[in-house]
């Protein structure tokens, strides 16, 4: 279903792309800076650069599910319009640009595919129980954590990273993943759990 990962897509992408087409190693820093510029200066050039960085990856991501290319591009359009309009609320201390855009794409996909809402907390709700000040468990991801997360995912055994990608990128419950991979549901759940435990170990027990 996924379009061929052609390198011409990368070359058409134009400016400041160090990407190899497989992995945007240089993305975290530059994407954060671009998104900040969009938010603060309404910088269209930065927005276009973000488009070239993320649209082809969003397309591959969305097409992993059984989404046709046309619908995938409609969702990408919605995502990028939200990116433009909400860029002012992006806070790199809370999440990377990739994570921020990932959550927008996830929510648009839910909206379009299932016509459901995604229940979410309201950060300003007086009933919200706040984070304790001191606990390390609540620390936000730092820049070097992100780099280590990249490396940790690369080190996962293929059967675990495969299921992890399916769990994130296909709009399917774990039971459907089990059916598709012809694995017992318990196996899918335990492999996902293993993947998360292994990531945590590779991250050097970041919590």
């Amino acid at each position: 279903m996924a379009g061929p990962p052609i390198s011409s897509a990368a070359s058409a992408a134009g400016e400041d792309r160090a990407g190899t087409g497989r992995s945007a190693e240089s993305a975290p820093e530059s994407a954060d800076a671009l998104l900040l510029r969009v938010g603060r200066e309404r910088d269209r050039r930065a927005f276009v650069a973000l488009f070239h960085l993320f649209a082809p990856r969003l397309k591959a991501f969305l097409c992993r599910g059984s989404l046709d290319a046309g619908l995938a591009e409609e969702i990408i359009q919605e995502v990028m319009v939200v990116v433009w309009r909400k860029a002012g609320s992006f806070d790199p201390a809370r999440a990377s640009a990739a994570t921020w855009i990932y959550t927008i794409a996830r929510n648009r996909r839910i909206d379009r595919l299932r016509q459901e809402r995604r229940p979410e907390i309201d950060p300003d709700d007086p009933a919200l129980v706040p984070e304790p000040e001191d606990a390390a468990d609540f620390a936000l991801m730092r820049e070097d954590d992100r780099t280590r997360l990249h490396q940790a995912i690369d080190q996962l055994p293929p059967d675990q990273s495969d299921l992890l990608r399916m769990a994130y990128f296909e709009d399917k419950p774990h039971s459907a993943i089990a059916a598709e991979r012809q694995l017992p549901l318990g196996t899918v759940k335990s492999r996902l759990r293993l993947a998360l435990v292994r990531l945590r170990t590779l991250l050097g027990d970041e919590a």
């Binding site: 990962p5 052609i6 990368a10 994407a31 990856r57 991501f61 907390i121 995912i153």
Partner: peptide
């Protein structure tokens, strides 16, 4: 999650994992 900062932090980490997977995603021409 509204009542549990611990799980909120865990969901943020899992979202960061999603963001990282998106960064590492292959590219498809648009």
């Amino acid at each position: 999650l509204a009542l549990c900062p611990l799980c909120r932090a865990e969901v943020r980490r899992l979202e960061a994992l999603g963001g990282t997977l998106l960064e590492q995603e292959t590219t498809a021409p648009v």
